[in-house]
Design a protein around this nucleic acid. Sequence first.
DNA 1: TGGCGAAACGGAGGCCCCTCCGGTATGTTC
DNA 2: GAACATACCGGAGGGGCCTCCGTTTCGCCA
Lengths: 188, 188
Amino acid sequence: MNPTPRKPSRKDAADNRERILSAARAALTESTGASLTAIARSAGVGIGTLYRHFPTREALIMELYRHHLQELIDLAPALLEEHPPLEALTLWCAQVARYGQLKAGVAQVVHAATNGGRDDEHYEPFVSAIDTLVRAGAADGSLKAGLDPEDVLLQLSVLWRIPAGETGEARAARILDLIIDGLRTPGA
Amino acid sequence: MNPTPRKPSRKDAADNRERILSAARAALTESTGASLTAIARSAGVGIGTLYRHFPTREALIMELYRHHLQELIDLAPALLEEHPPLEALTLWCAQVARYGQLKAGVAQVVHAATNGGRDDEHYEPFVSAIDTLVRAGAADGSLKAGLDPEDVLLQLSVLWRIPAGETGEARAARILDLIIDGLRTPGA
DNA sequence: TGGCGAAACGGAGGCCCCTCCGGTATGTTC
DNA sequence: GAACATACCGGAGGGGCCTCCGTTTCGCCA
Protein backbone atom coordinates (compact mmCIF):
# COMPACT_ATOMS: atom_id res chain seq x y z
CA MET A 1 0.00 0.00 0.00
CA ASN A 2 2.53 2.51 1.22
CA PRO A 3 5.89 0.86 0.81
CA THR A 4 8.16 3.79 1.58
CA PRO A 5 6.15 5.83 3.99
CA ARG A 6 6.72 9.52 4.21
CA LYS A 7 10.09 9.63 2.55
CA PRO A 8 11.47 13.13 2.97
CA SER A 9 11.53 15.24 -0.16
CA ARG A 10 14.92 16.75 0.40
CA LYS A 11 17.91 14.66 -0.46
CA ASP A 12 19.88 15.41 2.67
CA ALA A 13 16.93 14.44 4.78
CA ALA A 14 16.40 11.20 2.89
CA ASP A 15 20.09 10.44 3.20
CA ASN A 16 20.15 11.02 6.88
CA ARG A 17 17.06 8.95 7.36
CA GLU A 18 18.73 6.06 5.58
CA ARG A 19 21.91 6.40 7.53
CA ILE A 20 20.07 6.51 10.80
CA LEU A 21 18.16 3.38 9.94
CA SER A 22 21.36 1.67 8.94
CA ALA A 23 23.11 2.57 12.14
CA ALA A 24 20.09 1.62 14.17
CA ARG A 25 19.83 -1.74 12.50
CA ALA A 26 23.45 -2.41 13.26
CA ALA A 27 23.18 -1.21 16.82
CA LEU A 28 19.88 -2.75 17.76
CA THR A 29 20.27 -6.17 16.25
CA GLU A 30 20.06 -8.51 19.17
CA SER A 31 20.25 -5.88 21.85
CA THR A 32 17.56 -3.28 22.10
CA GLY A 33 19.56 -1.41 24.66
CA ALA A 34 21.68 0.83 22.46
CA SER A 35 21.29 4.49 23.23
CA LEU A 36 19.82 6.82 20.68
CA THR A 37 22.69 9.17 21.27
CA ALA A 38 25.07 6.43 20.24
CA ILE A 39 23.02 5.59 17.19
CA ALA A 40 22.95 9.20 16.12
CA ARG A 41 26.67 9.51 16.58
CA SER A 42 27.36 6.33 14.68
CA ALA A 43 25.11 7.57 11.90
CA GLY A 44 27.03 10.80 11.78
CA VAL A 45 24.05 13.01 12.54
CA GLY A 46 23.11 15.10 15.50
CA ILE A 47 20.72 13.82 18.07
CA GLY A 48 18.20 16.42 17.01
CA THR A 49 18.16 15.03 13.52
CA LEU A 50 17.49 11.57 14.75
CA TYR A 51 14.59 12.79 16.78
CA ARG A 52 13.07 14.71 13.92
CA HIS A 53 12.99 11.58 11.79
CA PHE A 54 11.86 9.28 14.55
CA PRO A 55 10.09 11.15 17.29
CA THR A 56 10.46 8.30 19.71
CA ARG A 57 12.57 5.28 20.23
CA GLU A 58 9.57 3.14 19.42
CA ALA A 59 9.12 4.85 16.11
CA LEU A 60 12.65 4.00 15.14
CA ILE A 61 12.47 0.36 16.11
CA MET A 62 9.07 0.15 14.54
CA GLU A 63 10.46 1.32 11.26
CA LEU A 64 13.17 -1.31 11.40
CA TYR A 65 10.68 -4.08 11.78
CA ARG A 66 7.90 -2.65 9.74
CA HIS A 67 7.91 -5.41 7.20
CA HIS A 68 7.84 -8.08 9.85
CA LEU A 69 4.71 -6.55 11.20
CA GLN A 70 3.24 -6.27 7.77
CA GLU A 71 3.90 -9.95 7.20
CA LEU A 72 1.93 -10.78 10.29
CA ILE A 73 -0.91 -8.57 9.24
CA ASP A 74 -1.04 -10.05 5.78
CA LEU A 75 -0.89 -13.53 7.15
CA ALA A 76 -4.33 -13.38 8.73
CA PRO A 77 -6.44 -13.29 5.55
CA ALA A 78 -4.08 -15.74 3.89
CA LEU A 79 -4.61 -18.28 6.63
CA LEU A 80 -8.33 -17.78 6.47
CA GLU A 81 -8.36 -18.85 2.86
CA GLU A 82 -6.76 -22.15 3.60
CA HIS A 83 -8.09 -23.06 7.01
CA PRO A 84 -11.29 -22.98 8.98
CA PRO A 85 -11.47 -19.89 11.19
CA LEU A 86 -10.57 -21.42 14.52
CA GLU A 87 -7.57 -23.11 13.05
CA ALA A 88 -6.59 -19.97 11.21
CA LEU A 89 -6.73 -17.98 14.42
CA THR A 90 -4.69 -20.57 16.24
CA LEU A 91 -2.06 -20.66 13.55
CA TRP A 92 -1.95 -16.91 13.35
CA CYS A 93 -1.50 -16.50 17.06
CA ALA A 94 1.19 -19.13 17.08
CA GLN A 95 3.02 -17.19 14.44
CA VAL A 96 2.59 -14.03 16.44
CA ALA A 97 4.09 -15.75 19.44
CA ARG A 98 6.96 -17.05 17.34
CA TYR A 99 7.85 -13.58 16.18
CA GLY A 100 7.92 -12.50 19.76
CA GLN A 101 10.30 -15.27 20.74
CA LEU A 102 12.44 -14.73 17.70
CA LYS A 103 13.54 -11.19 18.00
CA ALA A 104 13.52 -9.24 21.18
CA GLY A 105 13.19 -6.10 19.13
CA VAL A 106 10.03 -7.24 17.46
CA ALA A 107 8.50 -8.26 20.73
CA GLN A 108 9.24 -4.95 22.34
CA VAL A 109 7.94 -2.90 19.51
CA VAL A 110 4.83 -4.91 18.97
CA HIS A 111 4.09 -4.85 22.62
CA ALA A 112 4.31 -1.11 22.50
CA ALA A 113 2.25 -0.98 19.35
CA THR A 114 -0.43 -3.21 20.73
CA ASN A 115 -0.53 -1.65 24.11
CA GLY A 116 0.27 1.83 23.14
CA GLY A 117 -2.99 2.69 21.63
CA ARG A 118 -5.12 4.41 19.19
CA ASP A 119 -2.74 6.98 17.85
CA ASP A 120 -0.22 4.45 16.68
CA GLU A 121 -0.44 3.81 13.00
CA HIS A 122 0.50 0.18 13.48
CA TYR A 123 -2.18 -0.52 15.99
CA GLU A 124 -5.16 -0.35 13.71
CA PRO A 125 -4.01 -2.88 11.09
CA PHE A 126 -3.33 -5.36 13.82
CA VAL A 127 -6.78 -4.91 15.20
CA SER A 128 -8.22 -5.29 11.73
CA ALA A 129 -6.36 -8.51 11.15
CA ILE A 130 -7.72 -9.92 14.36
CA ASP A 131 -11.14 -8.65 13.60
CA THR A 132 -11.15 -10.57 10.35
CA LEU A 133 -10.25 -13.74 12.17
CA VAL A 134 -12.72 -13.46 15.00
CA ARG A 135 -15.56 -12.46 12.71
CA ALA A 136 -14.95 -15.51 10.60
CA GLY A 137 -14.91 -17.61 13.72
CA ALA A 138 -18.12 -16.08 14.96
CA ALA A 139 -19.78 -16.65 11.62
CA ASP A 140 -18.86 -20.29 11.61
CA GLY A 141 -19.75 -20.77 15.25
CA SER A 142 -16.37 -21.83 16.49
CA LEU A 143 -15.67 -18.61 18.33
CA LYS A 144 -17.84 -16.54 20.61
CA ALA A 145 -19.86 -13.91 18.87
CA GLY A 146 -19.15 -10.26 19.44
CA LEU A 147 -15.56 -10.55 20.52
CA ASP A 148 -13.77 -7.25 20.63
CA PRO A 149 -10.58 -7.57 18.57
CA GLU A 150 -8.86 -5.04 20.78
CA ASP A 151 -9.55 -7.25 23.76
CA VAL A 152 -8.08 -10.17 21.95
CA LEU A 153 -5.03 -8.20 20.98
CA LEU A 154 -4.54 -7.09 24.53
CA GLN A 155 -4.63 -10.67 25.65
CA LEU A 156 -2.19 -11.69 22.98
CA SER A 157 0.18 -8.95 23.97
CA VAL A 158 1.04 -11.03 26.96
CA LEU A 159 2.84 -13.39 24.64
CA TRP A 160 5.45 -10.73 23.97
CA ARG A 161 6.31 -10.47 27.59
CA ILE A 162 7.29 -14.03 28.10
CA PRO A 163 11.00 -14.04 28.74
CA ALA A 164 12.70 -15.71 25.82
CA GLY A 165 14.61 -18.77 26.75
CA GLU A 166 14.63 -22.47 27.20
CA THR A 167 11.05 -22.86 28.32
CA GLY A 168 9.72 -19.69 26.75
CA GLU A 169 8.31 -21.37 23.71
CA ALA A 170 6.48 -24.02 25.67
CA ARG A 171 5.10 -21.41 28.00
CA ALA A 172 3.87 -19.31 25.14
CA ALA A 173 2.14 -22.33 23.68
CA ARG A 174 0.46 -23.13 26.99
CA ILE A 175 -0.78 -19.62 27.48
CA LEU A 176 -1.89 -19.35 23.92
CA ASP A 177 -4.03 -22.44 24.40
CA LEU A 178 -5.63 -20.87 27.43
CA ILE A 179 -6.38 -17.70 25.54
CA ILE A 180 -7.90 -19.49 22.61
CA ASP A 181 -9.99 -21.70 24.84
CA GLY A 182 -11.39 -18.54 26.32
CA LEU A 183 -12.38 -17.31 22.90
CA ARG A 184 -14.08 -20.46 21.76
CA THR A 185 -17.75 -21.02 21.86
CA PRO A 186 -18.47 -22.74 25.16
CA GLY A 187 -19.46 -26.36 24.91
CA ALA A 188 -18.83 -26.60 21.19
CA MET B 1 4.46 -12.20 59.18
CA ASN B 2 6.92 -9.39 58.73
CA PRO B 3 5.01 -6.19 59.36
CA THR B 4 7.88 -3.73 59.39
CA PRO B 5 10.35 -5.29 57.07
CA ARG B 6 13.99 -4.63 57.58
CA LYS B 7 13.65 -1.55 59.68
CA PRO B 8 17.09 -0.01 60.02
CA SER B 9 18.68 -0.37 63.43
CA ARG B 10 20.11 3.09 63.60
CA LYS B 11 17.83 5.90 64.55
CA ASP B 12 18.95 8.33 61.87
CA ALA B 13 18.40 5.70 59.22
CA ALA B 14 14.96 4.86 60.53
CA ASP B 15 14.07 8.52 60.63
CA ASN B 16 15.16 9.12 57.11
CA ARG B 17 13.30 6.09 55.91
CA GLU B 18 10.13 7.39 57.45
CA ARG B 19 10.58 10.85 56.02
CA ILE B 20 11.24 9.48 52.57
CA LEU B 21 8.11 7.37 52.69
CA SER B 22 6.12 10.35 53.84
CA ALA B 23 7.38 12.57 51.08
CA ALA B 24 6.87 9.82 48.55
CA ARG B 25 3.33 9.24 49.65
CA ALA B 26 2.60 12.92 49.25
CA ALA B 27 4.31 13.17 45.90
CA LEU B 28 3.09 9.98 44.33
CA THR B 29 -0.53 10.08 45.36
CA GLU B 30 -2.42 10.29 42.13
CA SER B 31 0.56 10.80 39.89
CA THR B 32 3.26 8.23 39.67
CA GLY B 33 5.40 10.60 37.68
CA ALA B 34 7.20 12.48 40.44
CA SER B 35 10.94 12.28 40.21
CA LEU B 36 12.96 10.56 42.87
CA THR B 37 15.21 13.56 43.00
CA ALA B 38 12.25 15.71 43.90
CA ILE B 39 11.08 13.26 46.52
CA ALA B 40 14.49 13.14 48.10
CA ARG B 41 14.68 16.91 48.17
CA SER B 42 11.25 17.23 49.65
CA ALA B 43 12.17 14.67 52.28
CA GLY B 44 15.27 16.64 53.13
CA VAL B 45 17.70 13.87 52.33
CA GLY B 46 20.23 13.38 49.60
CA ILE B 47 19.45 11.31 46.61
CA GLY B 48 21.99 8.75 47.69
CA THR B 49 20.13 8.20 50.91
CA LEU B 50 16.90 7.60 49.10
CA TYR B 51 18.55 5.03 46.91
CA ARG B 52 20.07 3.21 49.82
CA HIS B 53 16.70 2.74 51.41
CA PHE B 54 14.87 1.95 48.19
CA PRO B 55 17.19 0.64 45.56
CA THR B 56 14.73 1.23 42.81
CA ARG B 57 11.70 3.31 42.09
CA GLU B 58 9.61 0.18 42.17
CA ALA B 59 10.85 -0.69 45.62
CA LEU B 60 9.70 2.66 46.92
CA ILE B 61 6.25 2.52 45.38
CA MET B 62 5.99 -1.08 46.41
CA GLU B 63 6.61 -0.15 50.00
CA LEU B 64 3.89 2.48 49.84
CA TYR B 65 1.31 -0.01 48.69
CA ARG B 66 2.61 -3.03 50.47
CA HIS B 67 -0.49 -3.48 52.54
CA HIS B 68 -2.75 -3.26 49.51
CA LEU B 69 -0.86 -6.13 47.99
CA GLN B 70 -1.01 -8.06 51.21
CA GLU B 71 -4.74 -7.60 51.29
CA LEU B 72 -5.04 -9.14 47.87
CA ILE B 73 -2.86 -12.04 48.82
CA ASP B 74 -4.79 -12.69 51.98
CA LEU B 75 -8.05 -12.45 50.16
CA ALA B 76 -7.53 -15.63 48.20
CA PRO B 77 -7.77 -18.15 51.03
CA ALA B 78 -10.54 -16.11 52.64
CA LEU B 79 -12.66 -16.34 49.53
CA LEU B 80 -12.01 -20.03 49.24
CA GLU B 81 -13.54 -20.58 52.64
CA GLU B 82 -16.79 -18.99 51.66
CA HIS B 83 -17.18 -19.85 48.01
CA PRO B 84 -16.66 -22.73 45.66
CA PRO B 85 -13.29 -22.52 43.91
CA LEU B 86 -14.41 -21.23 40.55
CA GLU B 87 -16.43 -18.50 42.15
CA ALA B 88 -13.60 -17.67 44.52
CA LEU B 89 -11.21 -17.33 41.65
CA THR B 90 -13.62 -15.13 39.77
CA LEU B 91 -14.19 -12.89 42.73
CA TRP B 92 -10.52 -12.72 43.48
CA CYS B 93 -9.62 -11.75 39.95
CA ALA B 94 -12.34 -9.14 39.93
CA GLN B 95 -10.86 -7.64 43.04
CA VAL B 96 -7.44 -7.71 41.47
CA ALA B 97 -8.81 -5.87 38.50
CA ARG B 98 -10.52 -3.35 40.73
CA TYR B 99 -7.30 -2.53 42.52
CA GLY B 100 -5.72 -1.92 39.19
CA GLN B 101 -8.43 0.47 38.13
CA LEU B 102 -8.47 2.21 41.44
CA LYS B 103 -4.99 3.52 41.82
CA ALA B 104 -2.57 3.96 39.01
CA GLY B 105 0.24 3.44 41.47
CA VAL B 106 -1.03 0.07 42.54
CA ALA B 107 -1.46 -1.04 38.99
CA GLN B 108 2.00 -0.02 38.06
CA VAL B 109 3.64 -1.63 40.99
CA VAL B 110 1.70 -4.83 40.79
CA HIS B 111 2.41 -5.07 37.14
CA ALA B 112 6.06 -4.78 37.96
CA ALA B 113 5.75 -7.27 40.77
CA THR B 114 3.92 -9.77 38.65
CA ASN B 115 5.98 -9.32 35.56
CA GLY B 116 9.24 -8.57 37.16
CA GLY B 117 10.09 -12.05 38.10
CA ARG B 118 11.57 -14.49 40.39
CA ASP B 119 13.82 -12.24 42.40
CA ASP B 120 11.04 -9.97 43.53
CA GLU B 121 9.91 -10.73 47.02
CA HIS B 122 6.35 -9.81 46.16
CA TYR B 123 6.08 -12.11 43.22
CA GLU B 124 6.09 -15.36 45.05
CA PRO B 125 3.16 -14.69 47.42
CA PHE B 126 1.05 -13.69 44.47
CA VAL B 127 1.85 -16.90 42.69
CA SER B 128 1.08 -18.83 45.84
CA ALA B 129 -2.28 -17.16 46.21
CA ILE B 130 -3.18 -18.08 42.68
CA ASP B 131 -1.85 -21.55 43.16
CA THR B 132 -4.20 -22.06 46.07
CA LEU B 133 -7.13 -21.00 43.96
CA VAL B 134 -6.36 -23.06 40.90
CA ARG B 135 -5.54 -26.15 42.91
CA ALA B 136 -8.87 -25.93 44.63
CA GLY B 137 -10.54 -25.52 41.28
CA ALA B 138 -8.71 -28.47 39.84
CA ALA B 139 -9.64 -30.60 42.83
CA ASP B 140 -13.27 -29.80 42.45
CA GLY B 141 -13.23 -30.19 38.70
CA SER B 142 -14.29 -26.70 37.78
CA LEU B 143 -10.86 -25.66 36.52
CA LYS B 144 -8.42 -27.42 34.28
CA ALA B 145 -5.95 -29.61 36.08
CA GLY B 146 -2.30 -28.71 36.14
CA LEU B 147 -2.62 -25.01 35.51
CA ASP B 148 0.58 -23.14 36.11
CA PRO B 149 -0.15 -20.27 38.49
CA GLU B 150 2.56 -18.19 36.90
CA ASP B 151 0.82 -18.53 33.59
CA VAL B 152 -2.40 -17.39 35.16
CA LEU B 153 -0.72 -14.46 36.79
CA LEU B 154 0.84 -13.46 33.53
CA GLN B 155 -2.56 -13.50 31.93
CA LEU B 156 -4.03 -11.47 34.72
CA SER B 157 -1.29 -8.91 34.44
CA VAL B 158 -3.01 -7.69 31.33
CA LEU B 159 -5.73 -6.30 33.53
CA TRP B 160 -3.31 -3.75 34.92
CA ARG B 161 -2.58 -2.40 31.54
CA ILE B 162 -6.09 -1.46 30.64
CA PRO B 163 -6.20 2.31 30.51
CA ALA B 164 -8.32 3.52 33.37
CA GLY B 165 -11.33 5.47 32.27
CA GLU B 166 -14.94 5.44 31.32
CA THR B 167 -14.98 2.04 29.69
CA GLY B 168 -12.01 0.61 31.48
CA GLU B 169 -13.98 -1.25 34.06
CA ALA B 170 -16.27 -2.87 31.52
CA ARG B 171 -13.35 -3.84 29.42
CA ALA B 172 -11.57 -5.40 32.35
CA ALA B 173 -14.68 -7.39 33.13
CA ARG B 174 -14.96 -8.62 29.55
CA ILE B 175 -11.36 -9.69 29.38
CA LEU B 176 -11.51 -11.27 32.77
CA ASP B 177 -14.41 -13.40 31.58
CA LEU B 178 -12.39 -14.53 28.62
CA ILE B 179 -9.46 -15.44 30.81
CA ILE B 180 -11.55 -17.40 33.23
CA ASP B 181 -13.34 -19.23 30.46
CA GLY B 182 -9.94 -20.30 29.27
CA LEU B 183 -9.13 -21.73 32.67
CA ARG B 184 -12.33 -23.66 33.11
CA THR B 185 -12.70 -27.31 32.44
CA PRO B 186 -13.90 -27.60 28.86
CA GLY B 187 -17.47 -28.71 28.45
CA ALA B 188 -18.23 -28.64 32.14
C1' DT C 1 21.98 31.84 -12.67
C1' DG C 2 20.85 34.01 -8.41
C1' DG C 3 18.03 34.58 -4.62
C1' DC C 4 14.84 33.22 -1.12
C1' DG C 5 11.85 30.83 1.99
C1' DA C 6 11.05 26.50 3.87
C1' DA C 7 12.89 22.52 5.69
C1' DA C 8 16.50 20.17 7.87
C1' DC C 9 20.47 20.20 10.87
C1' DG C 10 22.66 19.43 15.34
C1' DG C 11 24.19 20.43 19.78
C1' DA C 12 23.47 22.77 24.14
C1' DG C 13 20.62 22.23 27.92
C1' DG C 14 17.00 20.59 31.12
C1' DC C 15 15.49 16.82 33.54
C1' DC C 16 15.98 12.12 35.05
C1' DC C 17 17.92 7.72 36.83
C1' DC C 18 21.32 5.55 39.33
C1' DT C 19 26.32 4.74 41.24
C1' DC C 20 30.24 5.68 43.74
C1' DC C 21 32.84 7.06 47.49
C1' DG C 22 34.86 10.45 50.86
C1' DG C 23 33.09 12.30 54.98
C1' DT C 24 30.15 11.74 59.16
C1' DA C 25 27.16 10.24 62.81
C1' DT C 26 26.13 6.27 65.84
C1' DG C 27 26.20 2.41 69.17
C1' DT C 28 29.27 -0.49 71.08
C1' DT C 29 33.10 -2.09 73.60
C1' DC C 30 36.60 -1.50 76.98
C1' DG D 1 34.23 8.41 78.89
C1' DA D 2 36.97 7.53 74.83
C1' DA D 3 38.08 5.08 70.82
C1' DC D 4 36.64 2.26 67.13
C1' DA D 5 34.31 -0.24 63.56
C1' DT D 6 30.30 0.36 60.92
C1' DA D 7 26.45 1.79 58.84
C1' DC D 8 24.78 5.77 56.99
C1' DC D 9 24.78 10.25 54.58
C1' DG D 10 24.59 12.93 50.40
C1' DG D 11 26.15 15.13 46.36
C1' DA D 12 29.07 15.01 42.30
C1' DG D 13 29.14 12.72 38.07
C1' DG D 14 28.22 9.59 34.13
C1' DG D 15 24.88 8.30 30.96
C1' DG D 16 20.16 8.71 28.84
C1' DC D 17 16.03 10.83 26.88
C1' DC D 18 14.06 14.47 24.62
C1' DT D 19 13.29 19.69 23.33
C1' DC D 20 14.36 23.98 21.64
C1' DC D 21 16.12 27.08 18.55
C1' DG D 22 19.92 29.55 16.07
C1' DT D 23 22.32 28.17 11.87
C1' DT D 24 22.80 25.91 7.49
C1' DT D 25 21.38 23.75 3.30
C1' DC D 26 18.33 22.57 -0.37
C1' DG D 27 15.28 23.03 -4.17
C1' DC D 28 12.31 25.90 -6.57
C1' DC D 29 11.16 29.85 -9.28
C1' DA D 30 12.02 34.08 -11.52
